[in-house]
């Protein structure tokens, strides 16, 4: 029963190959045919439930399983190692992802797989899971804005946006930084909570995947910025920046996320 629950949780807190399901959902592959038939472009609304509900369900199932693991089979530790490997695998694959949907789905899988380390080594996983998943929301929103403007959110197709869409670019930079867990984002504090809380049990198994994945996220984040924000803009495209009021609103939301991150670490540590 414990094994079944943990495996089921692996769909919600991605564990490769179970992670294929949330990945396909986030990439819109499952709804692509329906969208094509109706002629409507799926908005960010379809991704938000996956980002917010999946981690909570996954944490719930995994917590239930660990409580049931009275015989202490060592299964959670095994799943912790599996989670670490999944995280590094997706972080590695993230490096070459150029499409926005794939980028978000791979980062989601890489980040949320780290929660297994917390589950295996006695860290309360709920707040870090929420911290990691809400940090992706601004980027989902910004990528949707790109899709609205250019038909596709893809790195390398329309470089140099900072010259043509400064408000958008500033927010896009912030959204990417928030997603890759730089300081003051909830994901930074979530990572800190996992590392500081889990290190007591096994230094190498806890710190190695966290550090490796984090490093690869940074690299991938810079790749994304390079292909979208920096460079020489194309002259054959029409650019439409965010209006300053809307941009301030989104920026305010990111500040609120930062405050949430600080609260998160205060509760977790």
């Amino acid at each position: 029963m414990t094994l079944a629950l943990l495996l089921l949780a692996g769909f919600f807190l991605p564990l490769y190959p179970l992670s294929v399901l949330p990945n396909a959902l986030l990439q819109g592959r499952l709804s692509a045919d329906a969208a094509r038939r109706s002629g409507r472009r799926p908005g960010p609304g379809s991704k938000i439930p996956v980002l917010l509900i999946f981690p909570i369900v996954g944490v719930g199932l995994a917590t239930l399983a660990t409580h049931m693991d009275a015989a202490e089979t060592g299964l959670p530790t095994l799943f912790g190692v599996w989670g670490g490997i999944t995280s590094v695998l997706y972080a590695f694959r993230l490096l070459s992802a150029k499409d926005g949907q794939i980028w978000i789905s791979h980062l989601f899988s890489s980040a949320l797989a780290l929660i297994w380390i917390g589950i295996a080594y006695g860290v309360d996983p709920l707040l870090p899971a929420i911290g990691l998943s809400v940090s992706l929301l601004p980027l989902v929103f910004m990528l949707d804005q790109l899709t609205r403007r250019f038909g596709i959110a893809r790195s390398g197709l329309y470089p140099g946006l900072c010259c043509r869409m400064p408000w958008f670019s500033h927010l896009f930079e912030l959204a990417v930084l928030t997603a890759i867990a730089v300081p003051f984002s909830p994901s930074f504090f979530a990572i800190a909570a996992l590392a500081f809380g889990g290190v007591a049990a096994d230094e190498v198994v806890v710190l190695l995947p966290i550090c490796l994945s984090w490093l690869l996220w940074t690299w991938a984040g810079v790749n994304l910025l390079t292909g979208i924000v920096w460079g020489i803009p194309r002259d054959d495209l029409t650019y439409r920046d965010l209006d300053p009021k809307g941009a301030l609103g989104v920026g305010g939301g990111m500040v609120a996320l930062g405050i949430f991150g600080i609260l998160l670490v205060e509760v977790a540590l």
Partner: peptide
């Protein structure tokens, strides 16, 4: 970033 990670590991070990 390569330097940030060892510092985080050091901080985690000290905290533990």
């Amino acid at each position: 970033r390569l330097g940030d990670l060892p510092l985080m590991a050091a901080a985690a070990l000290l905290y533990y």
